[in-house]
Design a protein around this nucleic acid. Sequence first.
DNA 1: TCGCATTGGTAATGCGCATTACCTATGCGC
DNA 2: GCGCATAGGTAATGCGCATTACCAATGCGA
Lengths: 368, 368
Amino acid sequence: MEQSRKRAKPGRNPGSGSRTSRPRQAEVAQLAGVSQATVSLVLSARSDGKAATISEETRQRVLDAARSLGYAHDPAARRLAAARNNLLGVFSFTATFPTDVQHSYYPFLVGVEQEAAARGYDLVLFTGSSSGGAGAAGPDALSRVRLADGCLFLGRHAPGAELKRLVADGFPVVHLGRREELEGLAWVGADYVSASRAVVEHLAALGHRRIVLVREADDAPASADRQRGFLEGLAAVGGEAGPGAVLRCADPAGAVTAERVRALVADGVTAFVAEETDTGAAWRALDAAVREAGLSCPGDVSLGLLGSPPPDLAAAPVPTGFDVPRHQLGAAAVRLLAALVAGEEAQEPLVVCEFRTGATAGPPGRRP
Amino acid sequence: MEQSRKRAKPGRNPGSGSRTSRPRQAEVAQLAGVSQATVSLVLSARSDGKAATISEETRQRVLDAARSLGYAHDPAARRLAAARNNLLGVFSFTATFPTDVQHSYYPFLVGVEQEAAARGYDLVLFTGSSSGGAGAAGPDALSRVRLADGCLFLGRHAPGAELKRLVADGFPVVHLGRREELEGLAWVGADYVSASRAVVEHLAALGHRRIVLVREADDAPASADRQRGFLEGLAAVGGEAGPGAVLRCADPAGAVTAERVRALVADGVTAFVAEETDTGAAWRALDAAVREAGLSCPGDVSLGLLGSPPPDLAAAPVPTGFDVPRHQLGAAAVRLLAALVAGEEAQEPLVVCEFRTGATAGPPGRRP
DNA sequence: TCGCATTGGTAATGCGCATTACCTATGCGC
DNA sequence: GCGCATAGGTAATGCGCATTACCAATGCGA
């Protein structure tokens, strides 16, 4: 008998002092002298004024009974019956939970948590069940998220097929990060385009006309957006946007050498911008190359970073660029998800990145 | 009608191509030409040879049907019906996603995840609903963990009353960290007593007799254990274990000054050990004080750390001490939890900490 | 005085699944 | 050829809750 695990005593005596099993609504009802249905109505009282059908007196009796019994909802039953249990899921496809503060998702999670708390939701965190987890293989991989009312997905590794399935089933899903290729998938993202353009415009205002973007050979939307913003900015300010304006390299450290930088500068380039990525490779390479080339910054060349520097380079000269408002992104994602759960059709705009003046940009040097 | 959210078309036609709702076992059954019960039997086939009641042919038909429909269990229903859904919960009570850089359960989680995966469990992470979360206040705070088959609790902040309640309800619970005051609560912990004693004995073997323990004024079991091991070690080696042997201070940085250290050394103390805590305050203070006092280590004084140094001090002189096997602790906790879920009575022993020779201990200096 | 709306509450139902009691062939020994 | 065991499967039930259809009592206008 499995249920022996749930009810310690199959035949218990409800009146006696020593209880041994979690109370059900039925027991609360008995104690309050009402029906189970009434208990449910009282305890799930949605603040929607709609349910004025229980008298205040009865309400109090039920609440007292529930309190004295220490009643707590069974989340599984709640979800099964009503398709609502006030829980929001967060799924990250990393091997382990991204609770390590070093982890790049961490800042998002902080925002997610705050917003969820503010809206009265509890959170449940799922991970991509690294190796041999139960659902690791099959389409079950994502099925656990159905424990929650809706789910937020982090990271570009979220498999499209699975997500599509959830969406098709009408399960509320929000993806954190631009994800337009999946029809019907809700997402929130940072406005890298505008932010990148702003950096270019800042450099242009300082007098730069020949600016080069160093980016990795990744095709992530985030990279594409930055490049687009960069080119738009260049065009807007009448800068030179020839094919040489973008340095796309699979291995930034190998491609962006001191020599290369020196050559470009000699050719008239006065400023460089790098995209931010997980590894920060582009910025790292650019920084090293400039330094090694013996160029002073921002004396000889100006540098811009389309994002935030990696933690280990956060010190000293703060790069001119922008900050991705990760907390706000997380919060926006939760807002959107909450709206979907509530059946609304809300749409979250792109979240604006904040320009960071920094100390790596100045007027162009006076090299020929 | 709420269910319109679950079933896109109340009256759907099972044969037509465009499906729009997640399939149930009933639909799989229909496709396979069997009953829902059969589908359940096949799909939940426990490897326990017990269930040989379905013919191989039927089994295959069901499996095929399930696959072609992309069937996936509903975790909520599963849990409700069977009290099992193959999920283990992990509850961390620290400020939900700890903003304190030092304070991360990450290493534990790594072990937890590996072991869970190895045992075919999926994980769900709950957090301490820091601020105004839904269940933040009431006894509901922990009720969500019932979504899982059992739950692991991290951190000393897990409220006893709630835990007791879960245990009393027969819900499988394991606490990571010693927790003996709660009758019936299963836990796993590191053997700080033995490990601390070993450090003292190591110092004693080098010739030290006057050793002082610097600890915080916390009453956590982990602190008490270290002190106990320290005193036991001192007693075992015939060291001087007077009341001055333990420096218990609320504010290590303020209490353990260069002067204080100098005075103690002048008084004949040749070695110090500090306990490890979240913040590493004790070790930090000791390290700074010794350095500031102009004492060389291990030339003038030997130092020991009952645990691991905080990340920012991990460099250079590796402290003599021990390492808490966090991965193994996490794994042990999962093993224990799995046993409880399975209804067994398993008991996990304390996990042994590994001695770390380090470079901060040597023979006593030759001060008078 | 009757009809009708409103208030306050309840019985019944079903969510999706696991489980169990039970039923129907077969096979087998004697 | 009969009784009985066994394999293979199914109908029915309930987990704990939200929801809905429905019912009883009361108020109120005409």
